[in-house]
Design a protein around this nucleic acid. Sequence first.
DNA 1: TTGTATGCGTTATCAA
DNA 2: TTGATAACGCATACAA
Lengths: 348, 348
Amino acid sequence: MAEPLLSSLPAPGARSASLADVAHLAGVSTGTVSRTLSRPDMISEPTRLRVMDAVERLGYVPNGAARALSMRRTLTVGAIVPRFGSSSFPAMVQALETTLAAAGYTLLLSAPDPRPSYETSILRALLERGVDAVALLGAEQPQQVFAMLAANRTPFVTMWAPPEAGVHCVGFDEYAAAALVVDHLADHGHRRIGYIGGRTADSERARRRLRDLSLAIAKRGLTLCDDALAETEHGFQEGFDAMNTIAQRQPAITAVVCGSDYLAAGALAALDQAGIEVPRRLSVASFNDNDFAAFLHPPLTSVRLPIREIGEQAGERLLAQLRGLDAPVARALPVTLMQRSSTGPVPD
Amino acid sequence: MAEPLLSSLPAPGARSASLADVAHLAGVSTGTVSRTLSRPDMISEPTRLRVMDAVERLGYVPNGAARALSMRRTLTVGAIVPRFGSSSFPAMVQALETTLAAAGYTLLLSAPDPRPSYETSILRALLERGVDAVALLGAEQPQQVFAMLAANRTPFVTMWAPPEAGVHCVGFDEYAAAALVVDHLADHGHRRIGYIGGRTADSERARRRLRDLSLAIAKRGLTLCDDALAETEHGFQEGFDAMNTIAQRQPAITAVVCGSDYLAAGALAALDQAGIEVPRRLSVASFNDNDFAAFLHPPLTSVRLPIREIGEQAGERLLAQLRGLDAPVARALPVTLMQRSSTGPVPD
DNA sequence: TTGTATGCGTTATCAA
DNA sequence: TTGATAACGCATACAA
């Protein structure tokens, strides 16, 4: 029905303008145009003006592929982001993007679906696109990924992921986070607690989280109750279902720890629906990876994970490598306890 | 401390292998190698094997920049995503990514910060990178953006954004969504209602949302109360604050409509903290853009917006254009009412 | 300060 | 089926 949008700006039947076109129109050489755009200070005022005018009139946009081919770099950083839509990754990515953008780099995102070892084909796509560096977001990366990166001499950093030996890695102290939650609960008199977290079979991070929690619990002489343990994907629905499953078993617990905001939200909804009052009959604590745990009803005690900070620091690590300062660093950021609630003392 | 990961795969002090290297090792021409990789069926078996072997041994990865330069396309689609971290965009992006990936395209994401007209520089970066098409996610795009796209003959689609005349656009029927909420509330006897939504000064979408809601409200003979109206950014904190502000005025309303999940979550937290029972004293309804409104406490009535579907359809529109079938289409997806709660009847 | 010419790694055209 | 070779658009070393 409607005509295609053809504003009359570009020459009616041609492809977009090139350096040569600009040079021609301005009556100079391509080299001069190139320099005018990249280092204007090396060009005389009158020439510069003529060139800029031609650029303007032609609506010239440089061809990045040609530039990349010539310069052997793309000013692009690739990021591999599993489970893009959920949890804390968006915030991490945004922080990363901002940090890199400040240095002139653009972020190229890829979200692999969970097919096993699909990461390598994603990584391959990134490498073919000539990314100058790669950020690995909290994924379980097959060893082959690191091999490919090494083979291509591509700088990279892992974010919120198990630190590999000698690899740039930015995360936080997982044990400290677990201890923070456990100490808080113990201080309020809780002895027997449950846990809803990620699948330990699928994720090294989930394994560490559970392990650290167990350690912290043992250290304080508490009990992690087997019948109040659930492993699931991350999400509202999943937290809801997991909490229902646990509640059916009527375990003898007074507190539940949730691995993420989404799980906590789902769990709280399930408890509410089941008429189990929080925190009077059951306290809920969580690892807050999304800055919204604080707004859940009822307010929960949560450990704020430094998500945004991870993104920033990872960006800086990447930039350091791109500048040639690439001593591998594993950096652990501090965690803090956000206590907005009257986490219940043990009920009678 | 640790040695850098240098597996012995690549030649110790060289840059990565090129077609020529592979050709040399396999004893064929570069043309043959190129064809072997792109159309193996046109190559004799023995040659093919020799080439593949060389590829393997050198760990050859094609140079995308060179390919793009030669082929004049990148198999890349750019997306401009405002307010990356919040609300419904991640789900939309993921759906878009999946749809495009199935057709061999990669998505290149850019998240402009809210600086005005920053979009044009973002778009410029995308165009320089040679994206074959662009997806505009629900942003207010300055007219200049469309001009740039037209000048570059770059296919594009707007998602969940005001339809521009003659432009590919995928959204949903905003008025129908508003009417769904209003009818539901009216059917439960509510007469006077409030609204927490986006800033109408900043966003055409917010303006339409408010306008449609007003229309639907008028049509049912209800009243949208001025003193129960709040405009704000989207987010938990913002919804929390807005609800508090409204509550202080003690408006004579029995229901509040929230523009998004995040706002609704914040509003519910505020009501809870203020001791205002939902839905006994105040009903809350929302536009559910994130599939989690249903899990909020207490459950709310919400209109599910077809976020994922927008992403899918937008991807398909883009692909259609890339294949040359580019009759502009404005597509409106249906909306549905999710009623999980006992949206309160009017209290006494 | 400006112009010339070469290389970047592919794809594609045209012969062989 | 394969090989040589010309684009592709830009940056840059070298000349002027």
